[in-house]
């Protein structure tokens, strides 16, 4: 994994102006993803995962109510690094769906209900690859087959409601992969699916990634999924990165108390039967985005919180060994 990153995010911040006040949905997020690498982004609801990914695609609602700052570098198909946040919109349209593509959480609502799925996939192919209708249709058949949809030719004319949730998500994946993007963003692509289908979709994504060498940003709540597919993990809390590490070190030795809590609430097969009762959830509630706590955003819920220290000022995101970052003033004393 020494190739240059295809996606390089530096100090990305997104603020929404709302009636209740300003929401800092994402603050100072930086990360990089290399070809063939999978970065998992984890965090509770409202931690800014989706807003981050939409900012990368420049798909946040336009208008004065949203402010995006920072830098997003994306390697275009011609090898040039593009500055996504300042790219003129017509050029950005050429990048969307081509160099960077996205699979959304809700396969039920993310497909147009009144257009045959074949047409919906063909659209991107014709747009970016300039194929004619016939050639695009053949390409759609190939893609549907690739994502494991049986009898692909017969499915071309199907409407989304004819397909099961898993099949729809495969269609979404086929659509996202149709132009062989360098970066695929998957925003909780399996959350809405049941467990066996979830495993199939993960397996599919992994195989496709091996084949195409694309970089994947995989957003999820589910640390079980992270263990299965990620190379690196970025933990977010209240719009901030609180820990970043390779997947093995993170699971073996989480540094930030929030990450420890997240890991503790994952069902573990090796402990099955030995522990009675429900899994310990992190106590307390997700912070109100309009009233983020002073200092470490996690301190009202943190068992290791020290008054006067943790709530005084925001801890730095500091280096904690090779390729590891953590945002906690006490991580040194807390981790054995």
């Amino acid at each position: 994994m020494t190739a240059a990153p295809v996606l390089q995010v530096e100090d990305l911040s997104v603020r929404f102006r709302t009636r209740g006040g300003e929401i800092a949905a994402v603050s100072g997020v930086s990360f990089a993803v290399r070809p063939g690498e999978t970065l998992a982004v984890v965090g509770e609801s409202g931690s800014g995962k989706s807003v981050t990914s939409l900012a990368l695609m420049r798909l946040l609602p336009p208008g004065a109510a949203v402010t995006v700052t920072g830098r997003v570098g994306l390697r275009g198909k011609d090898g040039r690094m593009l500055d996504v946040l300042t790219l003129p919109e017509p050029e950005m349209r050429g990048v969307r769906g081509d160099a960077i593509a996205m699979v959304f959480q809700e396969p039920m609502t993310s497909l147009n209900p009144v257009k045959p799925v074949g047409e919906q996939i063909a659209e991107a192919i014709r747009l970016h690859r300039g194929l004619d209708r016939r050639a695009a249709t053949e390409e759609v058949v190939r893609l549907l087959d690739l994502v494991g949809i049986p009898a692909p030719r017969q499915r071309l004319a199907s409407y989304p409601h004819h397909l099961s949730g898993g099949m729809r998500q495969r269609v979404m994946i086929a659509m996202a992969l149709s132009c062989e993007p360098a970066v695929l963003i998957a925003d909780e692509p399996t959350t809405a699916l049941d467990v066996t289908i979830q495993a199939q979709i993960l397996d599919l994504l992994r195989r496709l990634q091996e084949r195409t060498g694309m970089a994947v940003v995989f957003i999820t709540h589910n640390l079980g999924v992270v263990a299965e597919i990620a190379d690196r993990v970025m933990v977010m809390y209240g719009g901030r990165v609180v820990e970043q590490a390779d997947v093995r070190p993170l699971f073996a030795r989480p540094l930030m108390p929030y990450t420890v809590g997240l890991l503790r609430s994952v069902p573990r097969l090796d402990l099955a039967g030995r522990r009675a009762g429900p899994l310990p959830a992190i106590p307390g509630n997700v912070p109100d985005p309009l009233h983020m706590p002073e200092g470490c955003g996690f301190h009202p819920r943190c068992g290791d919180h020290v008054a006067g220290l943790c709530d005084a000022r925001l801890p730095e995101l500091e280096s904690a060994g090779e390729a590891r970052l953590v945002r906690c003033v006490r991580w040194r004393e807390l981790t054995p």
Binding site: V95, T109, N112, E123, L127
Partner: peptide, 29 residues
């Protein structure tokens, strides 16, 4: 405001195609 309109934008379709090809048909029904 539907998700599939965002999907259409995510494909890189120009705005008029998003509106004419995806939004208007659904809205007219």
């Amino acid at each position: 405001n539907q998700d599939y309109i965002r999907t259409a934008r995510a494909k890189g379709l120009p705005e008029w195609q998003v509106l004419a090809g995806h939004a208007m048909r659904n809205a007219a029904l």
